[in-house]
């Protein structure tokens, strides 16, 4: 009668209805953009720090959890860059790959140079960890890193752990007997890619659905795209997911890709505001634009 070790705490409906940022008057589309960019920043920083995807994914989930609900963090108080760095800091502490404040500060300083956090960084850009910041800057950022870490812990009531769908995804594929298929590695790659994209979803799919359902939706979509046949029967029900949830998740996965495209165009050549000052400046700019 123990609770499933695979279950995650999910966002309550009330938490999804509003956010700290919206209560502070930050437009929802701006919050969506910043959250998306912050999640990508976390992914990019994680790769530069040579962290396994499981660790990066947990950091992104912590980052996403932080903002939801009336009691969530607000962009008027916290920069997304700062919360991203502290999320990674926290999650790596609980992993087998703790990272020093120095490495974190340097990598984020390095990534500062990109307008929209890069989608694909290579860990061989190992220089990022050695990126130079002045001692004064370092001290300030380190202090902010740990201060924000505290705030994340308290905002989430110390719920900073998350189970992930990656291993499940492989297990389910085995159970579905697709491992004998000649193109199974293509299937697996596509499914994992969907899971990674969904981490960035503006619909916060990892905060609203349990890992088994996420894994199933990823396999379902990947199989359809790769033209690989899965059992005719409603196999997803074996894994505790109903058709409705599967459908919802598939739409959610695909719309994240559309959202990503749209964001790229929207911010072409401009910086997504990842600090409090930048967010304020963006709001001011918008107000002036609508005045003109």
């Amino acid at each position: 009668m123990q609770p499933s070790p695979l279950a995650n705490p999910l966002a309550a409906v009330a938490q999804l209805e509003t956010s700290g940022s919206r209560l502070d008057g930050i437009p929802q589309d701006l919050e969506d953009s910043v959250r998306y960019a912050g999640a990508r920043l976390t992914q990019a920083a994680g790769v530069l720090l040579r962290l396994p995807q499981e660790v990066i994914a947990q950091a992104i989930i912590v980052f996403m959890r932080f903002w939801v609900g009336a009691e969530g963090g607000s962009l008027a108080e916290f920069g997304a860059g700062q919360v991203s760095a502290s999320s990674l800091c926290l999650v790596t502490k609980l992993s087998a790959y703790p990272k020093s404040a120095r490495s974190l500060v340097n990598v984020y300083a390095y990534l500062d140079a990109f307008p929209l956090p890069p989608m694909h960084t290579e860990p061989k850009e190992g220089k990022a960890e050695m990126y130079y910041v002045s001692e004064g800057t370092y001290e300030r950022r380190r202090a902010s890193l740990f201060e924000t870490e505290q705030r994340i812990l308290k905002t989430l009531g110390f719920q900073v752990q998350a189970n992930l769908p990656y291993t499940l995804c492989i297990t389910y594929m085995q159970a579905l007997d697709v491992f004998t298929h000649p193109r199974v590695s293509e299937l697996a790659k596509r499914a994992i890619a969907h899971l990674n994209t969904a981490l960035l979803s503006p619909q916060l799919l990892y905060l609203t659905h349990q890992p088994p359902s996420l894994a199933i939706a990823a396999i379902y979509l990947a199989a359809r795209e790769a033209g690989i046949k899965l059992p005719e029967a409603e196999w997803w029900e074996v894994f505790d997911t109903d058709r409705e949830e599967l459908g919802f998740l598939c739409v959610g996965f695909l719309s994240t890709e559309g959202f990503a495209e749209q964001e790229k165009e929207r911010w072409a050549g401009r910086r997504v505001p990842l600090t409090v000052e930048e967010v304020n400046a963006e709001i001011k700019r918008r107000n002036e634009e609508s005045d003109a």
């Binding site: 009668m1 609770p3 279950a7 812990l153």
Partner: peptide
């Protein structure tokens, strides 16, 4: 503990808390 019937309300509540658990500030 294990001999409690599954209908034990305390157990059920626990299950709920962690199956559909959520987070809130400290």
């Amino acid at each position: 503990d294990t001999a409690r019937t599954p209908k034990d309300p305390e157990k059920e509540r626990k299950l709920l808390r962690f199956e559909g658990g959520r987070w809130a500030p400290c």
